[in-house]
Amino acid sequence: MKAILMTGVGNSEVLQVRELPKPKLTGDTELLIKLHAAGINPIDTKIRKRGTFYPEKMPAILGCDGAGVVEGVGINVKNFRVGDEVYFCHGGLGDRQGNYAEYTTIDEQFVTLKPKSISFAEAAAAPLVLITAWEALYERGRLEPGEKVLIHAGAGGVGHVAIQLAKLKGADVCTTVSSQEKANFVRRLGADYPIFYQQTDFVQAALNWTNGEGVDLLFDTVGKDTLQKSFPAVRVYGDVVTILEPGADTVWKAARSRNLRISLELMLTPMLQGLVSAQQHQTEILRQCAKWIDTGELKIHVAHRFPLKDAARAHQMLENGSMMGKVVLIMGNR
């Protein structure tokens, strides 16, 4: 099979096309998946630049997100059959094979049926960002109907699904954007108030929007000093969730004085720590999201599709920033 091998740590040139043996089923409950598409996420570019979580197992195949068709099943597989279309978030951290490849194997408990109404490219773009936004809003942030939430970078990969999940919960959403095009995009997704952060003080805008009280929940997908700057935009006793590691120089005074509850969201934790029940829960999240996608209540935006061989170019585009939605690799001629 063709695969993209991360041959070393460095720039996108370390991603090389290689011909590798097709993986074989090694467990009784495993599936052999013929991959049709793989999502690209910022974690992929970070691993490429910094090294995998398992450096002793280099070279590696990256890519946590995948979508494809079941081509083979283990003798004890109960829930899938050959020909099923599936999607999932699994592998790609340097231990198990990732999805920048034409085939992969995965235990059936970490897979669910792909939404019927969307393409393989859209399905492959979805898992990591859906799980991240779900856990951040519903579990870490405890979002309730009628609450107000500020989502940073609402046009981005995580942000564009977070807006929709917040609206599905019955919340009001304001979100930071950098252009009119992105403002129009997030409004189509349901955002109530796009804030042009380059021209407007987003904290003051959020306070004005909430009659001076502040939002109930801040969801930070940007990191750096954006987290610290955002504390005054959150109501007293409100919630803050960030998907980035706070910097050592973060000043927490405003958060402390407002009694904010700070939560960290890393959806990779179940994979990294081998927490099977937590991985099963994440699969349930994808199962529910598939229902919403098929009823038209949740949409996945794929901004760019690249053939598998152009993985390096896809990484470069993602690293250039200012992306609306997701970037996806397509296998074969699909």
Rank of each mutant, 00 (worst) to 15 (best):
C64Q: 14
I131G: 01
D95C: 13
D192C: 04
R313C: 01
K326F: 00
D201Q: 05
F202M: 07
D44P: 05
T283P: 01
R256I: 14
P21I: 01
E30R: 00
A124G: 12
P127I: 05
E19K: 15
L113Q: 10
D107A: 12
T132H: 07
G332R: 13
W134S: 04
G141F: 03
L168A: 13
G223A: 00
G72F: 06
L260I: 11
V241I: 04
V129E: 02
N320Q: 13
I151T: 07
A121K: 06
E85H: 13
V234C: 07
V203C: 08
P145T: 08
D201P: 10
G321N: 03
I293L: 06
F306E: 04
L264N: 11
M6F: 01
A303Q: 12
A67M: 09
K2M: 10
V240Q: 02
A126P: 10
N79M: 09
E147Q: 15
H281Q: 12
A171K: 09
M58F: 08
K326P: 06
I330N: 01
V9K: 13
D95I: 11
A155L: 03
R96V: 12
G66K: 05
Q316P: 03
Q198S: 13
G83L: 10
V70H: 11
F306W: 04
A124I: 05
L137W: 00
A133L: 04
R188Y: 10
Y138R: 15
C174P: 01
P127A: 06
F80M: 11
G66A: 04
I285V: 15
I40C: 10
D216G: 07
P127Y: 05
A125D: 08
G190D: 04
R142I: 08
L217Q: 00
Q279D: 00
S257N: 15
V129F: 06
T45Y: 10
N320V: 05
N259M: 14
G68H: 09
T52H: 04
E284Y: 12
S263T: 13
K49R: 13
A312Y: 07
D84C: 00
G247D: 06
I4D: 00
N211T: 13
P270Y: 02
D216V: 07
G190A: 00
